[in-house]
Amino acid sequence: MISLKNVSKSFDGGRTFAVNDVSFDVREGETLVLLGSSGCGKTTLLKLTNRLLESTSGTIEVDGQDIALQDSITLRRRIGYVFQGIGLFPHMTVEENVAMVPRLLGWSAKKRRERAHELLETVGLDPKTYARRFPEELSGGQQQRVGVGRALAADPAYLLMDEPFGALDALTRDTLQQELLSLKERLNKTIVFVTHDIFEALALGDRIAVLHAGRLEQIGTREEILKKPATHFVRELFAKPAKQLAAFGGML
């Protein structure tokens, strides 16, 4: 379980807050989607969780341990992270990219290789075809599959995903979302997924946390949020696409 208690983050010494007094729990095995428009603090929250950023106040606990008291390097190796910009290492092959965390953990070459091939299968890339390729030889969707593979490599219990499908075309995004769902079924990971796309949030999230201007507006299942929006902002947020859908529905 990951739990945040009164977490705040300011980048300018306390004048403004990117994250403002946010508290919530991520339950074992669930997918929690952090939903909000850009600048709402959702990516900052994700980075605070694996200490790419340090919080200004409040505590974050992973498995009941305050992360501020842990070694940040060890912490990051225990938490899978899929980056918004993908961030594959361009000078390494797909196999080497996927096997990077095991390499940092000191696995043997043979074990790393086996693990990399197994993971490529998992994310739907044929190791025979792709293992020796370099990232620039892959499409955007394939690259992000490798990114997911890399995050899963050391079999972490938690997976943080920062708008992983944001840069992909709608069709590819749809496929990858479906695969992520089935992956989650098989692997039983706890996932924190950041997106600004309401439909993606509704499709993937067991629960959704709506963020606005650094504050948590509401957290709950999709039914709770759709039926009982806690604030004006949440209501507005979901009302608009609903209207659009209705309009499209009329046309069709």
């Binding site: 694996n50 390097i73 190796r77 992270y81 980056f83 993908i86 961030g87 940092l104």
Partner: peptide, 19 residues
């Protein structure tokens, strides 16, 4: 982005430099 990924997956500063 590559640097952030290197940090985010848990490379030490030295590993980031060399790898």
């Amino acid at each position: 982005p590559v640097l952030e990924a290197a940090r985010g997956i848990g490379m030490t500063p030295r590993q980031r430099l060399w790898l």
